[in-house]
């Protein structure tokens, strides 16, 4: 059967994606080193705390205690690279037209729900899609917005006097700090789902994020998965 190489991910996207991985990891890690010094958040229901961020064993296991200075050093050094990488990424998305592959439209919500039902093996049909399905579009656009929100809430607690209007807009210093913390938790949640989906999608999909290409059968004008006849695996 004749084959074609399909370019899935431009070089810039691949580099920016993989550079972002250690940068975001370092921002989260240093954030936890800082948070340890005043660990106040938890999940509470009717005043009863179900889970405290974080349990002692977590800190002990990762060797977090008494590293506030180091956390601040890392956080306020790598923040620049995280910010610059993010700005280049968004700029590239806009000017290369790659935004067409990751932006959701109003109808995406319905299709994303169908994708989710498909992934949970409740329905067999998968809605038509381009490079990414609609659940991915929402997730990938969402995580960019989360990145922007992390910068904005971070600035609000970094410069609460000079940017007091921003801090006030977010509900004050304490609330901005709370938002900054929960964005970190959301990043960790995104990461967990992302990695699980990549693992399910398989090697060829993972490899395409490194080398850019995937092989497709030439007869398939529209990818088999978008014809919905088979239970094609969703690509992540």
């Amino acid at each position: 059967m004749a084959k074609q190489l399909e370019k899935k991910h431009p070089l810039a996207i691949r580099w920016l994606h993989w550079i972002n991985f250690p940068l975001l990891t370092l921002m989260i890690w240093s954030g936890i080193l800082i948070y340890w010094a005043n660990q106040v958040y938890g999940i509470k229901i009717f005043g009863y705390e179900l889970f405290h961020f974080f349990p002692a064993w977590f800190y002990e296991f990762l060797g977090v205690p008494f590293r506030l200075a180091e956390g601040l050093q890392l956080h306020f050094f790598f923040m620049w690279f995280f910010l610059i990488n993010g700005i280049i990424y968004v700029t590239y998305l806009i000017f290369s037209g790659e935004w067409r592959a990751i932006l959701p439209v109003p109808g995406s919500l319905k299709r994303a729900a169908l994708v989710t039902l498909h992934d949970l093996h409740i329905v067999k049909k998968l809605p038509a899609q381009g490079k990414y399905n609609d659940a991915q579009r929402i997730a990938y656009t969402g995580v960019i917005l989360m990145g922007a929100a992390a910068v904005v809430t971070g600035l609000a607690i970094y410069k609460p006097l000079q940017l007091s209007w921003l801090t006030a807009l977010l509900g004050g210093y304490e609330w901005a700090r709370w938002q900054h913390f929960w964005l970190m938790i959301a990043f960790v949640g995104f990461f967990a789902v992302h990695v699980a989906q990549v693992a399910l999608a398989g090697w060829s999909n993972f490899r395409s994020m490194i080398m850019g290409y995937e092989t497709v059968d030439i007869e398939t004008k529209i990818p088999a998965s978008s014809l919905n006849e088979t239970e094609g695996a969703t690509t992540v």
Partner: peptide
């Protein structure tokens, strides 16, 4: 197919030339 985000946003595919299995 038409009711598809990729279509709505005019997302393009980038496909290479036809290759044999081995070549690919």
């Amino acid at each position: 197919v038409r009711d598809n985000t990729a279509r709505i946003l005019n997302e393009k595919r980038e496909l290479g030339t036809s290759l044999s299995d081995d070549e690919a």
